[in-house]
């Protein structure tokens, strides 16, 4: 049992990706066991988003491999669609379906892919919407919701597929500062419930609170993998320290009211 639990749910080995001549990912090795939460951070253009987009093959990669529970994930494999069903993803720009109501956004995947009946799918969707505290908005369309509400619907939509792994690609970067917290709260409660998560984020408070490991990236390569305590105590490479102080300064600048 112990051995089974420690077998990684996701293994990334020797991953390399080029956008044309640009070497976007260099020899990435990363593995995650079930229940683990990883925060990926680093300066923009460092390849953080590209990693999570390779995990469900939204991006093609050239060498190396990504395996979910031992199954190879790439853009050409037959099992790609079934792998994607097991990996939830939350985007920076929410990407809710604007022509569908909130509840239909959440139930579409379960109804069409998991072949769950409308009634049961809606019942489960309402539970999920209650979990992200949006049960009263179920019949609205996305354009009537605030950014924070839309992102919480997007989280519910991803959870509706009962994923084994959740990917967050800068989920709060497109939000107004006052809405960041409501999304982070939902993510934190998800983390406490034991969801396996990879989060690309600059929210260092969130990273400190939930991350089991922090992956610091720059120039397409993993520069540092550290425990949060070590990472925030300056026990890491110089570039990471520079990045942390830069992010902290920005936080302070954007929230002049807080000391």
């Amino acid at each position: 049992m112990v051995l089974a639990a420690q077998r990684p749910i996701l293994e990334i080995a020797g991953l390399n990706k080029w956008f044309g001549a640009m070497h976007a990912l260099r020899d990435i090795d990363l593995s995650i066991t079930a229940g683990e939460k990883i925060v990926v951070c680093g300066p923009s253009g460092s390849g953080k988003s590209t990693i999570v987009r390779c995990v469900n093959a939204l991006e093609r990669y050239q060498t190396g491999e990504v395996r979910l529970e031992g199954r190879l994930v790439n853009a050409d494999c037959d099992s790609l669609l079934s792998v994607r069903r097991e990996v939830g993803m939350v985007f920076q720009s929410f990407n809710l379906f604007p022509h569908l109501s909130v509840i239909d956004n959440v139930t579409l995947g379960p109804r069409k892919l998991l072949k769950i009946g409308r009634e049961e799918a809606e019942h489960r969707a309402m539970e999920l919407l209650a979990r992200v505290r949006l049960a009263d908005q179920a019949r609205k369309v996305p354009s009537q919701l605030s950014g924070g509400q839309q992102q919480r619907v997007a989280i519910a939509r991803a959870l509706a597929m009962r994923p084994k792994l959740m990917l967050f690609d800068e989920p709060t970067s497109a939000l107004d500062p006052e809405m960041v917290k409501e999304v982070l709260d939902v993510m934190m409660s998800l983390a406490h419930e034991g969801m396996t998560m990879i989060c690309v984020t600059h929210e260092m408070g969130f990273a400190r609170a939930v991350a089991d490991r922090i992956v610091f990236m720059a120039d397409g390569a993993i520069q540092e993998t550290a425990l949060p305590e070590a990472f925030f105590c300056g026990d890491c490479c110089a570039r990471a320290r520079q990045f942390i102080s830069h992010v902290m300064k920005e936080r302070l600048a954007s929230q002049p009211g807080e000391p």
Partner: peptide, 22 residues
């Protein structure tokens, strides 16, 4: 927007389901 097809892919929709529903 490209994000629409990506969101559909991320849920696990293939080409035809993405076209028909999204």
């Amino acid at each position: 927007p490209k994000g629409q097809a990506e969101a559909a892919s991320a849920i696990g929709f293939g080409y035809w389901r993405t076209a028909i529903y999204i």
